[in-house]
Simulated assay, not measured.
Amino acid sequence: MADIKTTTDTPTDRTLGIILVSSSAAVFALTGVLTKSIHADPLTITCWRGFVGSILISLYVLWRRHRSGGQESLRLGWRGWLLAVEGALASIAFISAFKFTFVANVAIIYATAPFVTALLAWVLTREPFRLQTMVAAAVSLCGVAVMVWSGFGTGNLFGDGLALLMTIGSALYMIMVRAFRDTPVVWAGAVSAFLLFVLGWFITDPLAVSPRDAVLLVTFGSCFALSSILWTEGARLIPPAESGLLGSAEVPFAIMFAFLFLTEIPPAASMLGGAIMLCAVFAHAGRDWLLARSRRTEPNLS
């Protein structure tokens, strides 16, 4: 996020940052399990998630604004509204994807977002594209191709397509966050969640859910807000390379939760493609982390 900066580098704060970002990945990884456990349609789910999430994130933003003495602006402008709308559309595709394919497929395809972002940034803004990222992106593409190919002739292909669409949407969102540096990103996220609530309210009947689903929907919205807050606070305390590496832990968490709570085991082809993808993601993130760490530990010779 554009408004996230590392504020300190003390061992205690760094440890806290690692715990917060790792916890954010674990909480966010519950998205697939919760979506598949709820019997309601995707728009009803996004409506409830938007309602609960927008309230909790708004309270968090107002709390941070109070702590800063009112210095943090809440003015979105056209850039903030564009972020909110684009984020809402990506969220709809994200939640819908879980209804049509395996949790592992969605989580692994979504893990390619940094590579898709780098590619789109090069195409749209001519931002430099590192050789390391290019190689990792090519390997990831091979893994995704294996997964998508395995979906032909099954109902999973549509869900995989939604996951790819959501990943492209998330990549565009990240590019806009970098371009709109003065935009309050977290506040735009709260507005995005509220837009999902408004859309769901007028298109579906969000109150026509069972008591069981209502509890899960509130839990879903709370998890969404909690993961956002944990990541925001944790990313302030550790370097970007480290937060990116820890954020990648969301993928194995999602696969593990799907197995534990849903007994969901994806096909062998999906597992093979996912293994190829994960190797590329973790190798890329790990190399960035090691490079950043070596720079921090180099003696100052000046």
Rank of each mutant, 00 (worst) to 15 (best):
L119F: 15
F259I: 15
T232L: 14
E250L: 03
A118I: 00
G50C: 01
G200H: 00
I238W: 06
I168L: 15
A235N: 11
S54H: 02
I55V: 15
F194C: 04
R64A: 04
C47T: 02
A269N: 12
F220T: 10
H66I: 13
V185H: 09
P239T: 15
V85C: 11
I57E: 00
V185W: 13
G286E: 06
G70C: 14
I229W: 04
L195N: 09
S96P: 04
T101H: 11
A2W: 00
R181C: 01
L62H: 03
P11T: 05
W289A: 14
L195W: 07
A97K: 06
L83V: 08
W122M: 09
F28C: 06
M271T: 12
L30N: 05
A29Q: 10
F28L: 15
P266Y: 02
A40Q: 05
I19T: 12
I255A: 14
W78I: 13
R130K: 13
W201K: 07
A145W: 12
T46R: 04
G274T: 03
I265D: 09
W63F: 15
A88F: 11
M176P: 02
V139F: 06
A241L: 13
V106R: 02
I109V: 15
F220C: 10
L82E: 05
L43S: 02
N105Y: 01
R293D: 12
L290G: 06
V186M: 14
A275C: 12
S24H: 01
L291Q: 11
L301G: 06
W78G: 04
S68D: 10
F98M: 06
G244T: 00
P11H: 12
W231I: 10
M1C: 10
T35F: 06
R49P: 03
S37I: 09
F158V: 10
V146R: 01
G17R: 00
R49C: 03
V135D: 11
V215Y: 02
D205E: 14
A254M: 04
A113H: 10
A29E: 04
F197Y: 09
L262C: 09
T297H: 10
V198P: 05
L260P: 05
L165I: 14
W63I: 14
L217R: 05
G153T: 09
T219F: 12
M147A: 08
V85K: 03
G77I: 08
M174H: 04
V116P: 00
G69H: 09
K99W: 01
P211I: 08
S23P: 01
A171I: 07
P252F: 09
V185P: 08
G221Q: 02
L272D: 08
A280W: 07
N300D: 15
A190S: 15
T112E: 10
A107G: 04
S37H: 11
S58Y: 02
Y60F: 15
